[in-house]
């Protein structure tokens, strides 16, 4: 599998999954799946021309810099990599991005965010994980907070979410927490996906021209 242009090979032709099946399984329409293929093709051929998205290609698309590692972008990449083989294929790309569609159910967004924040995959979000994430955010931003302020933020948030007080946030507690704090899911909706066929119309236009 190489990096042929989409005028020669669309998502159907290169065996990246049937757009109709992907559309029926996700929040995307068939046209939107085909438009996403344009974006996918560009990303997956930007450095290593094997038609798969490698982490450095993901970083390049996110930050215009293939060497720029970021704690949270790493987490997103790892969760997109559903097969856990170190690369993202087109099906994984579409199925994972679908969670970020403004039309995707809140329950999907809630569950995905839980997995993002369950850093060690224990089935719980632990206080140490929350602290680690706050410190990572501070590290990447210009925000400078003292240790005691960080502790206060972490403690306060954790105590709100950990309603049974067992020292860890389980999926049910997380659901209740995000209901009361919708800002916690702010990063889970991507308005761009609403207009994806406008942003990447070329495949659809070529596809219709070939029909």
């Amino acid at each position: 599998m190489g990096c042929a242009s989409s005028s020669q090979f669309g998502p159907r032709a290169v065996g990246h999954g049937d757009p109709a099946v992907l559309a029926s399984d996700t929040s995307f329409t068939v046209n939107e799946v085909e438009a996403l293929y344009e974006l996918y093709r560009r990303m997956s051929c930007s450095i290593i021309k094997d038609g798969l998205i490698h982490k450095e290609e993901f970083q390049l698309a996110m930050f215009r810099n293939s060497k720029k590692a970021n704690f949270f972008a790493d987490r997103v990449f790892d969760l997109f990599d559903l097969k856990r083989n170190g690369v993202i294929d087109f099906e994984e790309f579409v199925r994972s991005l679908s969670v970020f569609h403004p039309r995707a159910p809140t329950s999907e967004k809630t569950a995905f965010a839980f997995k993002l924040y369950d850093l060690r995959g224990t089935g719980y979000i632990e206080k140490e994980e929350l602290r680690e994430m706050v410190l990572a955010l501070l590290d990447e931003s210009d925000l400078c907070l003292s240790d005691s302020v960080v502790e206060a933020i972490v403690d306060n948030t954790f105590n709100q979410a950990d309603s049974n007080g067992d020292g860890k946030i389980d999926p049910e507690e997380w659901k209740e927490f995000v209901k009361k704090n919708p800002a916690a899911l702010r990063n889970m909706s991507l308005p761009y996906l609403q207009d994806i066929t406008l942003a990447f119309p070329s495949f659809i236009m070529r596809s219709e021209a070939n029909d």
Binding site: M133, V134, A184
Partner: peptide, 25 residues
């Protein structure tokens, strides 16, 4: 006030979650 800050809302501001960057040409 730190007590009123939500750690998850803070985290959600990370550039690492800004998937909109993927759509910038």
């Amino acid at each position: 006030k730190p007590e009123s800050m939500n750690a998850f809302a803070l985290i959600s501001r990370s550039q690492g979650f800004n998937l909109g960057n993927l759509f910038e040409k």
